[in-house]
């Protein structure tokens, strides 16, 4: 190509080129800073660009995530085989306990329904869920997001709660055509209105980059017991009320820390909860909701 000509130019004008190069670096560094400003000021535009670029790379990320998922599964399978007996015993006892709970739940459901009719309680809008696979979990010290394979065409909307197995893991912050990004509850920017299940105390769950997010705006005299469940409060109307998030792990001078129920490092599939969309089909009820 141009190698010969550019080679002689380099020899002739090396100092000039070095200067130009220095200038390029300065220019590019300034451009980065300018981009950061744009990201701060024009966040919606940047989110849109992000969603488009993520869409474009989603197939590649999807392809790359499959071998990783398989490897993780193989490792887990080996570990499972090792403790299959203990696991069986544990599950038997757990099943016995859950059967009792099931009976209790049925009784409470019936009782709740009859009380609702007595009170003319207006029911909450039905929820439906979209299941999506996690295809990217970008490593970074200061941001916790995952990319999932469901987007606008699947009905994903910004703000939907993402639930993995037994607890909420985050909420949708960007929606592309066939991919979207979920901000995990441990991210520095995550804020979720929550209620402590027993004391009915309201608070805001705020990520702080550690594995255990903390509770903000709790009154100092509020009784907080370690082990108490933390659920979404439904305030703000973004998430349904009562999605379990975690349990209080510690309460001390450094604030109240919450241990998420879901293992955030190992989520493979997420359910994005469509709330208030009024889906008449009433697909799989996603979380036990409670009413005050």
């Amino acid at each position: 190509m141009k190698s010969r000509t550019s080679g002689s130019v380099v020899r002739l004008a090396a100092p000039l080129r070095a200067l130009a190069q220095r200038f390029t670096f300065l220019l590019l560094a300034l451009a980065s800073v300018a981009l950061m400003m744009v990201g701060k000021v024009e966040a919606p535009v940047v989110d849109d660009v992000r969603a488009r670029v993520t869409d474009a790379f989603a197939p590649i990320l999807d392809a790359l995530s499959r071998p990783a998922a398989t490897a993780a599964r193989v490792v887990e399978a080996v570990a499972d085989i090792q403790n299959v007996y203990d696991e069986n015993q544990r599950l038997k006892t757990e099943n016995a306990r859950l059967m009792q709970w099931y009976q209790t739940a049925l009784r409470l459901e019936a009782e709740n329904a009859s009380l609702h009719t007595l009170l003319r309680f207006s029911p909450e809008p039905p929820t439906s869920a979209i299941t999506a696979r996690v295809i990217a979990a970008p490593g970074g010290s200061f941001y916790r997001t995952v990319v999932v394979t469901a987007g606008r065409r699947d009905g994903v909307k910004k703000g939907q709660a993402a639930v993995a197995g037994n607890g909420m893991v985050g909420r949708v912050v960007e929606v592309g055509e066939w991919s979207s990004r979920v901000l995990l509850i441990t991210d520095l920017n995550a804020r979720i209105p929550v209620t402590l299940e027993q004391s009915r105390q309201r608070a805001v769950l705020a990520g702080d980059n550690s594995d255990q997010p903390k509770l903000l705006y709790l009154p100092p005299e509020a009784p907080v017991t370690v082990g108490e469940r933390v659920v979404t409060s439904g305030h703000g109307g973004i998430f349904p009320a009562g999605i379990p998030i975690g349990v209080v792990a510690s309460s001390g001078e450094r604030g109240v820390k919450v241990q998420p129920l879901a293992d955030l490092a190992r989520v493979e599939h997420l359910r994005l909860i469509d709330y208030g969309a009024g889906s008449p089909l009433g697909e799989a009820e996603t979380a036990p909701r409670e009413t005050k």
């Binding site: 670096f25 800073v33 992000r50 970008p138 941001y143």
Partner: peptide, 24 residues
């Protein structure tokens, strides 16, 4: 340098990092 910058911005867009961080 321009290619490096482009890679950095691409990583920012894909990883959810503040735009321009990896570019810089």
């Amino acid at each position: 340098p321009s290619a490096v910058f482009a890679i950095g911005v691409l990583m920012d867009l894909l990883s959810g990092a503040p735009l321009g961080l990896h570019g810089l």
